[in-house]
Structure formats: C-alpha cells, structure tokens
Design a protein around this nucleic acid. Structure first.
Length: 537
DNA sequence: GGGACCTGGGTAC
DNA sequence: TTCCAGTACCCAGGTCCC
C-alpha cells in the first residue's frame, strides 16, 4: 500500500482487534477519507512528524560507541541506582477496567444487541464497540461512517450517559468495600487493597476474582483486572488479559522486568502513536529496547521525557494516585457545521460560556485564565488565552473574555469552538477574602475616586454577591468621612486581591491600573439586572 | 537566569 | 442521507519581565 499518514492508519492497540486485517482496515479508512480536509490535515501533521524524526535520528547519529558506553554508565550510576532504591513493592494496587463499558450497558438493557456487531455513538464518532464489532475493525474513537464501511451491518446506538453514570456509581460503591478511597472514573477504577488483604485468608488472585465476581453479580458487567505494586504496572497488566480476565505481576524487580521487557513501548500509558513512531525511528520497538538504548534516550530526549520513558520501562511509578490531587481546569467545546458568521459564532460562544459558568458554579470555583480554542474548517487548531488580574466566574465575564479572543482571530471559518478556564480556586475562599477586604476597600483605597458614583458602581459590581454590601459600605463611609481621603497602610488591592504593599503610592498606582483594566473588561458586560440596582446618590 | 505566561501538540478515555 | 467528539492533563518551546 502507498504511504499512509500515521493518524490515518488502522490502530490495532485495543483488546479484541487482534484478528483484524490491518492493511485492509487502513485501506478502507484511507479510501473513505481521501481528499477531505481531515485527510489533508493528517498529511500536514505527518510532515511535521517526519521533520521531528529527521532531527532526532540525526542527533542519535552523532553518538559514537564510546559516547554510548560513557552515557550508559552515567545513567546507571546517576539515575537507575537511586530509582531502584526508592522502589516501593509494599502496596497491592488493582486496576479494574469494565469491558466495552457503554456497549455492555446497552446489551444488558437490550439483550438482543448481544449477538450483533454494535457500537455506541453516532455516524460522526463512536465511543465504544462491542467485541463482535471489533472483529471487523470497529473501535472506539472511530467515526461511525467509517465503521459502517468496515462493517455495514453495524448497529449504532446513541449514548445514554446518565445510565452509564448510574451504573458507574453503583460499581464505585461496591468497590468501596475493598478500598474506601477507590478512584473511579466512568469505566475504570484504581484500588489499593493492601489493607483489605490483611483481613482476608485467600490469595491476591482470589480476592481480585471476588471483586470482579461481585461487580458482575450486581451489574451484569464483566471487567478485567491488573494487579501490581503500582498503578502503571496494574494498568498495563489489565490490558494483557481482556476481556473478563486478570493478570498479577509479582512485586519484585526480576518479575517486573520479565513481564515488561517483551511488550511494545505502546503498552506504556502515555506512549501514543506519535511517540511510538518517533521511538521506532531510533530502533526502539519493545520495552527492552528502551532499556538497552538508554544512552540514545538520554541524548535525544528532554529530561522529563527521558525520565518518564526509562522509569516506565523499569516499571517504576508512583504507587498510587494522591487523594489531594485537585482539578486544574475545566472546559466546554462544541463542534458544528463550519461557519464564519459572526452571529452564529456569538450564539455558540454564548452557549459554551453558559455551560462553563454553570460547571464552575456547580463546583463552587472561580478562575484566573480563560482560553479560547477554535478548530478551523481545515482542522487546524488555535488556542488563545488571557490571564486576568482577578478571579472570574460569571457567565458574562467568561463570554466577553472568550469573545474578545475570538474577534482577534476573525475572519476565519470555524468548525469547533471551545472555552477553557484554568487557575481554579474555590469561590468561597475568594469571597471570604473579598469580604475581609471590604472594609479597606471602602474606607481607604477607593477614596480618591469617591465623587464618581458611576465609576464606583462599576467598581463595586465586581464584588458579585457582595456588591450590595460593598455599595452600602461605600455610601456609609462616604457620608461619615468626606474630608480625608488617604490610602491605608494595610494595603491589599481590593480589585485583584493579589497585590499587597505598605507603600501607599505604589498601592494607589496599582489600584488605578487594576481599576482601568476592570473597567475596560466590564465595558460591554450588561448589568446584573434585578440583583443590583444602580443606587442614586 | 528564572518564573510566569502563551501556544501548540500528544495522550487517555 | 450521514462525512473525524469532548474533557482533561502534561510537556516543550518561545516570549516577556524582573
């Protein structure tokens, strides 16, 4: 077959796809995609990848045999020895993966689907496929219309996320019996059963079988499991015995090496098809190759990538996911028929911003950074971000920031619009901070603009639910003390709450700057009608 | 020189 | 008929500012 871009090749890395004719499936995908903007974009991406490959192979070519020996010694002494000393074999981690989860749920609810090739999703995109459909090369993240070419009798069922969530929650509560801190996403779970095992007489394999049996008896869903001393190994192990099976990796260096060495680098979670191709250009195909070519890895990769790849190859990873890990950002995006109409884009931007502000509201968060994402009609992606000097959460604030970023990109034909927020902080914390700064805000820092009621109104508005309080405090203060406007020595900027200074000139300068930024940002925002009426002074 | 920020890209599910 | 998603995280490289 002619040369095919990496992203267009049939991807066999999924349970149940082993028997598929890879070349034939790739041919169908290519024939269906050829000439489309998607195809052209894949070709563009492929060219960039080829460039990276040329650079990395040239770099590898500069190493002499003596260099390699020297670097190997350094890697062994400086890195591997200390990593090995820090290994933790003490935990027993179980990774559970529900077999073709969405499809299994649909089969339980409609048993007639069981014998048919079936996938959950739409003609645009599939979420998952049952094992019957996988025999034809149909898999998750495959467009439905291509899947139908591979398997014309495929039944595509629309997703019912509420139903999947309900069953996922049910499974999570079952698993809490074995680990009260279980980490459950929609269709997979990580458990630390070290403590639970101490209360049991059976082997690890017995206990894991019991867990899987319990899930099956209560939900009808089969699942696969991997058991090892850390989450990464457990996850790789799960993949080896799918569906409805389990794999245990003994917690010692030799067993771990024997388990990992023959596997493809692609089995490492975090190594996708691009990294796989990049590594294969360096003749690194298996995990064993990663270790034996550690000098090349050290020479050609960035430090973090080198560390990640070599540690993964050695089976070294954090034992478990920390409980304290919190969410870093949230986003919403929508794909639609490509358009450059300002009116249509505004409506989409409004609806995406509204969803995002509801998400922030639901988790009581506010954010510092707003990022706009657009996918143009040629499938190229642009992101544009802005970091504010104050926290935002209101729909209008998100919308106007995203919209301004979008206006700068026009004219352009767009097929996807997304908005993301980062720098998340609990809203209650910010409100408490604001509340604490209200006194300073009113009695000191803003005195110098006290006669400008309109400006004050705009300023106060940013206090959100505290705005009426801020306003009345301002008015009260204005009446009580009209003579001596002065800047407090306890200076916290009431606008951004980040800047602190005991230097009153500096503080005033900063507050002025912040207010101007705010006014600029607030200019086009409609007032919060009903909640805060503009008072007359 | 280092940190923060911005943008693009890779990956998982 | 349909014609490649949505959410989240991490890393790398560039720029700017102190």
């Amino acid at each position: 077959m002619e040369f095919v871009a990496t992203g267009l090749r049939f991807n066999p890395h999924k349970a149940g796809l082993g028997s598929v004719n890879e070349e034939e499936a790739t041919r169908v995908i290519v024939d269906t995609s050829k000439g489309t903007e998607f195809y052209k974009n894949e070709e563009r991406k492929e060219k960039l990848l080829e460039k990276r490959i040329t650079e990395v192979t040239e770099l590898a070519g500069t190493l002499t045999e003596q260099d390699k020996e020297r670097i190997e010694k350094l890697v062994d002494e400086q890195f591997i020895v200390s990593w090995e000393q820090e290994r933790d074999f003490s935990r027993v981690i179980v990774h559970l993966d529900m077999d073709a989860f969405f499809a299994s749920v649909e089969e339980i609810d409609q048993p007639s689907l069981k014998s048919l090739p079936m996938a959950v999703g739409s003609t645009s995109m599939l979420s998952t496929a049952n094992y019957e459909a996988r025999k034809y090369g149909v898999r998750s993240a495959m467009p439905g219309f291509i899947a139908l070419k591979l398997c014309p009798q495929l039944v595509i069922v629309p997703p019912r996320f509420h139903r999947y969530c309900a069953i996922s929650n049910q499974i999570a509560s079952l698993l809490r019996e074995f680990d009260s801190h279980v980490h459950m996403s929609m269709d997979e779970a990580y458990m630390d059963i070290t403590e639970y095992l101490k209360t049991q007489s059976g082997t690890i394999d017995d206990v894991v079988s019991k867990i899987r049996q319990k899930v099956f008896e209560n939900t009808g869903i089969t699942c696969s499991a991997g058991v090892a001393c850390n989450t990464m190994l457990a996850k790789i192990a799960t993949d080896l015995n799918k569906p409805n099976g389990q794999t245990f990796v003994q917690p010692d260096t030799i067993s771990i090496r024997n388990f990992l060495n023959p596997l493809s680098v692609r089995k490492i979670p975090g190594v996708g098809r691009v990294t796989e191709k990049l590594l294969s250009s360096l003749n690194i195909i298996s995990i064993q190759d990663l270790i034996s070519n550690r000098s090349i890895l050290f020479h050609c990769m960035k430090r973090k990538t080198f560390k990640f790849l070599l540690q993964s190859a050695l089976g070294i990873a954090p034992a478990f996911i920390s409980d304290s890990e919190s969410r870093k950002g949230m986003s919403r995006e929508r794909t639609f028929k490509p358009t450059s109409s300002l009116e249509e884009l505004r409506k989409i931007c409004e609806s995406v911003s509204e969803l995002l502000s509801s998400d922030l509201e639901a988790e009581d968060l506010c954010a510092k950074t707003v990022t706009l994402k657009i996918k143009c009609s040629d499938f190229s992606i642009r992101t544009r971000g802005v970091t504010k000097c104050f926290f935002i959460y209101r729909y209008e604030q998100i919308l106007e920031n995203a919209w301004k970023l979008l206006l700068k990109e026009l004219p352009v034909e767009i097929r996807l619009l997304g908005v993301r927020v980062n720098g998340l902080v609990p809203r209650s914390e910010v409100l408490t901070q604001r509340k604490n700064s209200l006194e300073n805000f009113v009695s000191n820092t803003l005195k110098y603009k006290e006669n400008n009621a309109d400006l004050m109104y705009e300023k106060v508005k940013d206090f959100g639910s505290l705005a009426p309080t801020a306003w009345s405090l301002f008015r009260e203060n204005r009446q009580q003390n009209e003579k001596e406007p002065e800047i407090s020595s306890t200076g916290v900027c009431p606008v951004c709450l980040n800047f602190r200074s005991s230097n009153s000139c500096l503080l005033e300068k900063h507050v002025n700057f912040c207010i101007e930024r705010q006014e600029h940002a607030l200019k086009k925002i409609p007032t919060n009608s009903g909640k805060l009426k503009k008072p007359r002074i």
